[in-house]
Simulated scan of single mutants.
Amino acid sequence: MKVSGKIIVVTGAGSGMGRELTIQLVKKGARVAMVDIHPEALEQTAELAGRDKVSLHVVNITDRATVELLPEQVKSIHGNVDGLINNAGIIQPFVDVKDLDYAVIERVMNVNFYGTLYMTKAFLPDLLKRPEAHIANVSSMGGFIPFPGQTFYSASKAAVKILTEGLYSELKGTNVGVTVIHPGAVNTNIMKNSVLNSPASVASSKGAQKILSAEKAATIMIDGIEQNKFRVLVGKDATMLDILYRFNPKMAVDLIVKKMKNMVR
């Protein structure tokens, strides 16, 4: 689906990839309904993207009742919606399963999986009425390979992966295209927005020069949507780990464990 002239909803639009997605979609001729829980961040994105091309929606995507009201709110401003990019997500503190509090686990699953599910179910009936439409859900390379200390983040993103692939199978032959996106390391505010402050998260900044920019990641994502790709890998790390995991899952996981241990030394 070409994005020019389309109305597209983007979650997590206040910062990082969501902000870059909004800016680039507007540059390509789309109008964007920006969804985020942080009003100040939405205001900043609106200034960068162009206020006449966007609308601001302060929404907690884990609140199903609020999400279910969103389609009519967006349509009242823009008209019919043509696309949905479920980008919003959080990571967990770098804590092992045995030590992680249930409240944190539930928050990660609620934002990453249920938020994506609620948004998808809310907008899908209207998308099916459009001449052409698209749903793109952002999983992660953690959605196909686990990282120690991020088990529930990976589990939530694996759920997004299967949800999206299941949607593809159900919607094949309809007017709605479906894409699952697996970003690798991208320079965003996900740690800050996830309320993290751990040695491992600080250590990860040592490799910041190797991290893909949010601008480049957004370009790859939009290109994948316009080409109606089934699956989009964002970054050399995601591509390399995908190949390795397919070849030898145990070897891939062992490599990740070794790399993570070296990061926190």
Results as ranks from 00 to 15, higher is better:
M260C: 08
N60I: 10
L128M: 13
F123L: 15
H182M: 06
T22H: 02
P148Y: 15
N60E: 12
P146R: 08
K2H: 14
V264Y: 11
V59W: 05
F147N: 11
R231P: 00
N193G: 13
S205G: 06
E226R: 11
A103Q: 13
K192C: 07
M34D: 00
K157D: 02
K259V: 06
Q227P: 06
K2P: 06
I8L: 01
V138N: 03
M1Q: 03
I23S: 08
K258V: 06
G235S: 06
V3I: 15
G149M: 07
K216Q: 13
V10S: 07
N189K: 07
A41S: 14
V108D: 00
G149N: 10
P39S: 11
S76K: 15
L69M: 08
A136I: 07
D63P: 03
K28Y: 10
L255N: 15
L212A: 05
A200I: 08
A30M: 04
A208F: 09
S213L: 05
V97K: 01
G89R: 03
A41W: 00
N80H: 14
V108G: 04
Y153M: 02
A65K: 11
I105W: 14
L117A: 15
A238W: 01
F247M: 14
D242E: 15
G184F: 09
Y118I: 08
T179D: 13
L21W: 09
K161M: 13
D82G: 07
K161I: 05
N187L: 03
K216S: 12
M119V: 04
V9Y: 12
N175D: 15
I85Q: 05
N193T: 10
V176M: 12
E165P: 02
A65H: 12
L100A: 08
L21E: 04
Q44F: 03
G29S: 03
V32H: 03
G50P: 02
K121R: 12
I90N: 03
K121Q: 09
A217G: 10
M34T: 00
Y118W: 15
N187I: 02
L48Q: 10
N262K: 15
D36R: 01
Y102G: 10
T45N: 07
P125E: 14
I91L: 05
I145F: 08
N86Q: 09
A214V: 11
S213H: 06
L241K: 08
G83C: 07
D101M: 07
I37D: 00
I243P: 00
L48N: 08
L56H: 00
